[in-house]
């Protein structure tokens, strides 16, 4: 199995415990960690105000900064890490990054206060679709604690 661990994250204080746990798992396994930020500007869809600038570019830069912060945490824990910022639908981007980087394990944060992307149902779909196809393991973390593991 590949030793690359993928940690999709949005950054921010709410993500720190989960990032730390993902880093700890990577250290435990002697694996490299890849932090992923997916730019999503769907929230602009319901406003009538004009979008006069390339907000995706701004969001990409914000994502890079969030990942730089995550990378700093990994460095402090002496875990090798890399980052990638992508645009698109979460499920599709995830599948693509798993394939490109030969990821063995995906560490996902559970739905933080209803704002995250991972619900039980959604996760099952991910495992069915991506897990079955690529053989990756999914670890779900909530507030830094492992709450579920899915192995295909």
């Amino acid at each position: 199995m590949s030793k690359m661990i993928l940690c999709p994250t949005r950054g921010g204080k709410g993500s720190y415990p989960n990032q730390d746990r993902a880093i700890a798992i990577a250290k435990e396994r002697g694996a490299e960690i890849l932090f992923l930020y997916i730019t999503n500007v769907e929230f602009l869809g319901l406003t009538a105000a004009p979008k006069l600038i390339d907000i995706e570019q701004e969001m990409d830069e914000m994502g890079e900064f969030m990942l730089a912060m995550a990378q700093e945490r990994a460095e402090n824990a002496e875990v090798k890490s890399s980052t990638t910022v992508r645009r698109g639908q979460f499920r599709k981007v995830l599948a693509k990054v798993i394939e490109e980087h030969q990821v063995g394990t995906v560490v996902l944060g559970s739905s933080a206060g209803g704002t995250g992307v991972v619900t039980e149902e959604y996760l099952q779909t991910l495992v069915d679709e991506i897990g079955a196809k690529t053989g990756v393991e999914f670890i779900v973390i909530d507030q830094g604690e492992i709450v579920n593991t899915y192995k295909p």
Binding site: G12, G14, F43, L44, A49, M59
Partner: peptide, 16 residues
């Protein structure tokens, strides 16, 4: 509108 878009951006950084 400015309130909503700001909340939309902070949400993307897990800071709702």
């Amino acid at each position: 509108e400015a309130n909503l878009v700001t909340a939309g951006i902070t949400e993307q950084a897990n800071t709702p």
